[in-house]
């Protein structure tokens, strides 16, 4: 009786452990929201019968995993939160050239020979409407006394778009804005969601440079929170999807990209409060045309990444 119990439970364990991997046909690593990739996989599997295996984490963790697995890689499709990844991987020669037929309606600046955007997020000020602070309209508003000790900044070292915003704004005034923020008690508070969570409960009033779709989704759920895109300009982060050249399932991977850019796939993107990559898909949120974008030299900014992060660390201390 004990024996049969043991073999039974061992069987259950083995089955549960194998379930994740054995029947997977295409493996997607994504830095996007879990619920988006879940719904997209579900739709894709329903349409094509191909199963999808997902690893979801922050961009940094996704990249680390790919690097750790470099000698024995399993990822077929990568969806990053930073276009820089696509540029870097293309340079390394890790990507497969592919132009999806569904990418026709994607504007040129959101696609290359090797990568195409899944959707776009923008950075803004996430502000708790019940915080008792006046509604901020500009980045510099957050250095005012009303926001003393009430501002979180996502860590630019952990988020590509945060870094771009930091670099672009810092380039305008030699880090003065950030020094003022620090003087006003603003702190660097981990990755995007980590910075946002305290604002939801009201521990902080605002996130300086919050990823918009997370905030918009929270607002849709009923949280008393809003996103403000400053008129002086902000940055956007197209989220590139790419196929890795070591993939043994390239046909399935291409089908996945096609589905991602299909009407159904793009509607799922819009439902997550991201801007869809295709211009012909409607979305219930401000689109690229509604935003003023900060101008900066991408290559120069990334060339000085270490220096910029070092300066920020110096200003905000810690680590």
């Amino acid at each position: 009786m004990f024996k049969s119990l043991k073999s039974l439970s061992l069987g259950v364990v083995a089955a549960a452990l194998m379930a994740g991997v054995a029947h997977a046909d295409v493996t997607v690593y994504t830095a996007g929201p879990q619920s988006l990739i879940d719904k997209m996989s579900e739709g894709f599997t329903k349409e094509t019968g191909i199963k999808v295996n997902v690893f979801q984490a922050t961009t940094g963790k996704v990249m680390a995993r790919i690097e750790a697995e470099a000698s024995n890689p399993v990822v077929d499709v990568l969806i990053s939160a930073s276009w820089d990844t696509a540029t870097d991987f293309e340079k390394r020669g890790w990507l497969v050239k592919y132009s999806s037929p569904n990418a026709a309606k994607v504007p040129d600046f959101l696609k290359s020979d090797y990568a195409v955007a899944q959707g776009i997020s923008a950075l803004g000020i996430a502000w708790n409407t019940k915080s008792g602070t006046p509604k901020p309209t500009e980045w510099a508003d957050l250095t005012k006394a009303e926001y003393k000790d009430m501002v979180n900044i996502p860590d630019p070292a952990q988020s590509g778009s945060s870094f771009e915003l930091t670099a672009a704004l810092a380039g305008q005034d030699e880090f003065k804005l950030f020094k003022d923020l620090q003087a006003n008690g603003a702190i660097i508070a981990g990755a995007n969601a980590e910075a946002l969570n305290p604002v939801l409960q009201g521990a902080k009033a605002a996130v300086f440079g919050a990823v918009d779709y997370i905030t918009l989704a929270a607002k849709k759920k009923g949280e008393s929170i809003d996103v403000i895109f400053p008129a002086s300009g902000t940055v956007i982060a197209p989220r590139p999807a790419m196929i890795l050249n070591w993939s043994k399932n390239q046909d399935e991977a291409k089908k996945f990209i096609d589905y991602m850019l299909s009407d159904a796939g793009q509607k799922l993107v819009a439902a997550q409060m991201l801007m869809p990559a295709r211009t012909d898909i409607p979305a219930d949120r401000p689109l690229i045309g509604d935003l003023k974008l900060l101008k900066f030299d991408n290559a120069a900014v990334y060339g000085k990444r270490k220096e910029t992060l070092g300066e920020i660390t110096k200003i905000f201390g810690g680590k």
Partner: peptide, 21 residues
Amino acid sequence: APVGMQTIATFIWRQFEQGSI
């Protein structure tokens, strides 16, 4: 944790990371 496999702890951790506290 292998690709596509969540445990209780990673599930909770991920919900926090995504704002679904």
